[in-house]
């Protein structure tokens, strides 16, 4: 809503996403960032926890930095559905007047947040990778990639409140959990009523449980076009297994059908921040770099010495992956 006095709005609120009664990793990342913003804005952090029989999760949100947890517990919120979630969040916003609301840029957050922004009539910045505060003007500065990661834009929402953003998973740091930190818990009755915007969830089909999600792996062995074939990925898998990591890939490999889309790192794939990222035969298109450059240590192997991946690599090796990787596997095994 448009406002003449932004100081009437207080608090950094976070949508604490949970699925099947398990809090999503992004919720902790948001709390970490929210804590930092709240300190700069001289306010506190509130988590909004929606679901069915989820109130027991409030203490976990407190451990990661929530000063207050507002719970909405309702059977209608058991599985995510746009309308009841948007209805509950809108009612919380109208009741508590937060100055900032953060959501994960997940398939839930990116559906919920725009619906809420239109209902409240306020600005929403998508897929942020950086959030900061202009303390002098009391505004949040929301930075995000655009044009396929070629350009960064810093967005503000000067005259409307709350300032809302969805935040890319894997980008913000969680706070260290603190068992002593307790939160005030507020049970909020959102008075949810079935209306014409409700849909019916006829079935829920879980995707096959695969290996660990690349976003959660500490070590990634990532292949690009230079790997050359689906078969050659077996070699990368072997290396990843030795190192206790996972295999990921650039978009070219997904497009070529060598690996599944779930493994894609980059602007249209996942943002990853492992301790170690080994880029094998990846040239390093800007869209790819956008998804991995925050990795702790980057080792790149590529034949082409002018490949852009070397611009971000801590250790760059100009050479043939087909001789280097087997040799590396052999040495690590012995």
């Amino acid at each position: 809503m448009r406002t003449d006095n932004i100081y009437n709005f207080k608090g950094v609120f976070v949508f604490a996403e949970q699925v099947d009664g398990k809090i999503s990793e992004i919720s902790f990342e948001l709390l970490g960032k929210a804590k930092e913003l709240a300190e700069k804005l001289r306010t506190d952090v509130t988590a909004m926890l929606l679901g069915y029989k989820v109130e027991n999760l409030a203490s976990e949100l407190a451990r990661y930095g929530a000063d207050r947890v507002i719970t909405v517990d309702d059977k209608k919120l058991e599985s995510y559905m746009t309308e009841p979630y948007a209805d509950a969040i809108t009612k919380i916003i109208k009741r508590f007047n937060p100055e900032v609301v953060l959501y994960g840029a997940t398939t839930i957050g990116r559906d919920l947040a725009p619906r809420v922004s239109a209902r409240v009539f306020t600005g929403l910045t998508a897929d942020c990778t950086k959030l900061d505060v202009d303390t002098e003007n009391h505004q949040v500065l929301m930075t995000r990639p655009a044009f396929g990661g070629n350009l960064m834009a810093t967005i503000m929402c000067p005259e409307y409140r709350p300032q809302m953003a969805t935040v890319r998973p894997g980008v913000m740091q969680k706070a260290e959990p603190n068992d002593a930190h307790k939160a005030e818990v507020i049970k909020f009755d959102a008075e949810l009523k079935n209306n014409s915007n409700y849909v019916e969830i006829a079935d829920i089909i879980k995707k096959e449980a695969k290996r660990r999600d690349i976003g959660e792996a500490n070590i990634l062995v990532s292949g690009g076009r230079g790997v050359g074939s689906a078969e050659n990925f077996a070699m990368l898998r072997e290396l990843a297994d030795i190192l206790g990591g996972e295999v990921s890939a650039s978009r070219a490999c997904v497009d070529a059908g060598w690996v599944e889309k779930d493994l894609q790192v980059g602007q249209t794939g996942k943002t990853v921040r492992p301790t170690l990222y080994i880029a094998v035969g990846i040239s390093g298109a800007i869209q790819h770099l956008a998804g991995m450059e925050e990795s702790g240590t980057i080792i790149a192997i590529n034949k082409d010495e002018s490949a852009p991946i070397f611009e971000v690599a801590d250790y760059g090796i100009v050479g043939d992956l087909n001789t280097i990787i087997p040799e590396l596997i052999k040495k690590l095994r012995s």
């Binding site: 960064m152 800007i286 980057i298």
Partner: peptide, 20 residues
């Protein structure tokens, strides 16, 4: 409601060592 405060090309982190 949202305004673009500024836009800028993405800065890359500096390169480390590169050897053949």
């Amino acid at each position: 409601p949202t305004k673009v405060a500024k836009s800028f090309p993405k800065a890359l982190k500096g390169a480390g060592q590169k050897t053949t």
